[in-house]
Simulated scan of single mutants.
Amino acid sequence: MTDFTNQTAIVTGGAQGIGRAVANRLAKDGARIAIWDRDEALGREAAQEIGGGAFACAVDVADWASVEAAMKSTLDTTGRADILVNSAGIAGSNGPLADYPVDEFRLITEINLLGTFHVNRSVVPAMTAQSYGRIVNIASVAGKEGNPNASAYSASKAGVIGLTKSLGKELADKDIAVNCVTPAAARTRIFDQMAQEHIDYMLSKIPRGRFLELDEAAAMIAWLCSKENSFTTASVFDLSGGRATY
């Protein structure tokens, strides 16, 4: 079902976390991986470990010029962009909205939402020209339900859901699927940005009674990236262990 032979997959935030797990899975199934990550050294290390012609581009998704340059480099290297998995993002600190630092709220929005816009905007022309593409944006169950003391993160991920639905409808007459997933928390380095109280809160809301495993996320995302996913677009796929109420 997930044969990606001769396909190029761009994975933002692909040096670690869900992005790295997805990059590993897509490469295993034949894709050539372009890791777009702000941490250039970690991205190059990941590309070397993945192999199969994988390469890394240093990218700040919040900076349109940086994204444009990465897209040009990727097309110069591979000639095509079949898959985008947009996993780059930050959680930010936890605190009530009335006290939340204005500059930090802006930064989280710029990376999580504006960054998603930049990356999607950069790949759509290439996918349209080749009459094929699969885009998966990583949102969050927080974007559906809103986590207390995480207004910036929740709002930015809600925006990712809305952007995905909009773009999916724009491209629905083409063989370009645009979907997103809404994971519950997984144990990644993003936990380093969160208070333990907030981590405990998130776990308490998951009926499965545990956090998401990275390979579980990669399995669902791989199918959404495949040719088998030929009909569903502008949709949201749950990875919340039963937490989501819609």
Rank of each mutant, 00 (worst) to 15 (best):
V85E: 06
I35M: 03
D76F: 01
G241E: 13
M202K: 04
A129K: 15
S204V: 06
G209V: 08
G95F: 06
L97W: 09
G53T: 12
A139M: 02
A58H: 12
A142K: 01
A142W: 03
N94Y: 06
D99Y: 08
I10W: 11
T116Y: 01
V160G: 07
A186M: 03
D37Y: 08
G19M: 07
A152E: 08
N147E: 07
S240N: 11
F4V: 07
R187A: 14
I90Y: 01
D238Q: 06
C57K: 12
T74Y: 02
G53L: 01
V141M: 01
S66R: 12
F55W: 13
I111W: 02
D103P: 06
I50L: 13
N137V: 05
I111G: 05
T128M: 13
R121K: 15
I35L: 13
P148S: 05
V141G: 01
A139P: 08
A81C: 15
P207D: 04
G143K: 11
T116H: 03
V141A: 04
F231R: 14
Q196S: 08
A69K: 15
G95C: 05
S131I: 05
E45M: 05
F4N: 10
G241V: 11
D99F: 03
I135W: 02
N120T: 13
I33V: 14
G53N: 10
A47C: 10
S235Q: 13
R134T: 10
V11T: 09
A129Q: 15
G52Q: 10
G89S: 07
P207G: 05
N179R: 03
G159E: 07
V61M: 04
D238F: 00
L42S: 14
H118G: 01
A234M: 03
Q196L: 00
D39Y: 05
V236I: 15
K28E: 15
F191A: 00
L42R: 15
F231N: 07
A54Y: 12
A88N: 06
S87I: 02
I138G: 06
E145K: 08
F55P: 12
R80M: 05
P183R: 02
V85Q: 04
R210E: 14
A9P: 01
A185V: 11
M127H: 12
K227A: 09
A234T: 11
A184T: 15
D103H: 07
L26A: 05
R134N: 10
P148C: 01
A158T: 13
V141N: 09
A31H: 06
